[in-house]
Design a protein around this nucleic acid. Structure first.
Lengths: 224, 224
DNA sequence: ACGCCGTCTCTGGTATGCCACAGGACGTTA
DNA sequence: TAACGTCCTGTGGCATACCAGAGACGGCGT
């Protein structure tokens, strides 16, 4: 099973369209507030309007686009308030994941987290921000998967999609000293997880997310 | 064409179908695992397959039905594991809501919670389980709304739909003594919120959800 | 009597055409 | 010139037709 949550695992045209649209939106290839014409996309993908429609429908319930009947379909941009709310949720879910993972004891994900930290240390050492950003992604991902709660994972992925998180990580890590500090915080969390101290792991993880939010918001251009 | 307005925003056919289907699934009118033929539903609603399809699509991303391509669409029943996971999420979100509400200070929702408790006390006194069940719903709802976090609210509602929670509440309250105990726990939570003690409010709320989960699971027939 | 295999039906997937409505362009009028 | 009303274009909503795959079912061979 892949980590991608697409419709029903089918390899249909529609699944392809959904995946590609989601990628574009999250990566920022598609500027927000422009009109995503069903017709134009259908032609671009070489399919009819139907699968595009269905893709829009699903992306709408995921919160990535907004369909305004008889007006158009638009990429949504989270408002500042929504970004705050999303981070609140992120803090919540990742904190819980840390706690749950700690309760599970020695599981493969924990080993992989420690491996991740070793690589992250090296990346920080040599100032390789790009690589470190990747590792941060993986770190949070491992944590969530390690919680062994599929619902939590699903909701988490929805949130991250709405935040277009990958872009934000790069932004926040561009602050001098932030990668090193972030790495430190990751270490503390993993230590507490390994020590099976769920309460503290959750608390520290939440603090980490808050710190990360500060780092992001500081760099964030004001939404329109 | 009928001009009937439904509660949820636009009065499109599709919105009507979604609302009605969701209602049926949550209320249990539709037995799980039966085949929901697009065609049959379309005829019943007097519309074409298109809006029914789109409704299915949305309900699938909400986790209420499963579309198996070229086989059929089925009402999903959460497995025991999923129920556990859903309760874990419920605990998380309601705990967080309690904390957030406590941080907000004196807001209208808090007054309404206290009013809710007064009515709940009365219902428990006279053993009116049905009314108490309604009030429990309202209690949790007020808590979530009072958190003033739309994302949290949205994710919470998705969860509750998947759990078909209204039915569960009634089930768990049928245990002797459970309503009274539940009412007690609600009181403690509201007291802590009023005292602006977010940490404790979260902790107690989470304990309450765990207790409630026990009460539900004890009564739950084993899913096939 | 049993098992295999072909066919046949029903399903959702896709393409397409028509429609009503939103909203802007543009001409008209005070 | 500015405000207003009309028309025109583009959009998504909906209906319909056709297609391919999944499974059930029955006939046929053993």
């Amino acid at each position: 099973m892949s980590q991608v949550m697409d419709g029903a695992g089918n390899g249909s045209i529609q699944a392809r369209v959904i995946a590609e649209m989601r990628r574009r939106i999250i990566s920022g290839d598609l500027p927000p507030d422009v009109n995503l014409s069903e017709l134009a996309l259908a032609e671009e993908f070489g399919v009819s309007r139907t699968p595009v429609r269905e893709a829009f429908k699903q992306l709408q319930t995921e919160g990535l686009v907004e369909i305004r009947p008889r007006v158009g379909t638009f990429v949504t941009t989270p408002s500042r308030r929504e970004i705050t709310e999303l981070f609140e949720m992120k803090e919540l879910l990742e904190g819980a994941a840390a706690r749950l993972l700690a309760q599970r004891g020695r599981v493969p994900e924990l080993d992989r987290l420690e491996e991740n930290l070793r690589e992250a240390d090296a990346a920080v050492q040599r100032d390789d921000t790009a690589r470190y950003a990747e590792l941060v992604q993986e770190f949070h991902d491992l944590l969530i998967v390690g919680s062994d709660n599929r619902k939590l994972e699903a909701h988490y992925r929805t949130l991250m999609n709405q935040l277009a998180y990958p872009r934000l990580v790069t932004t926040s890590l561009s602050q001098p000293g932030r990668p090193a500090q972030s790495d430190q915080e990751h270490h503390r969390v993993v230590e507490l997880i390994a020590a099976k101290d769920g309460d503290s792991a959750e608390r520290v993880m939440r603090e980490h997310v808050r710190a990360s939010r500060q780092a992001v918001l500081a760099r964030l251009p004001l939404p329109r």
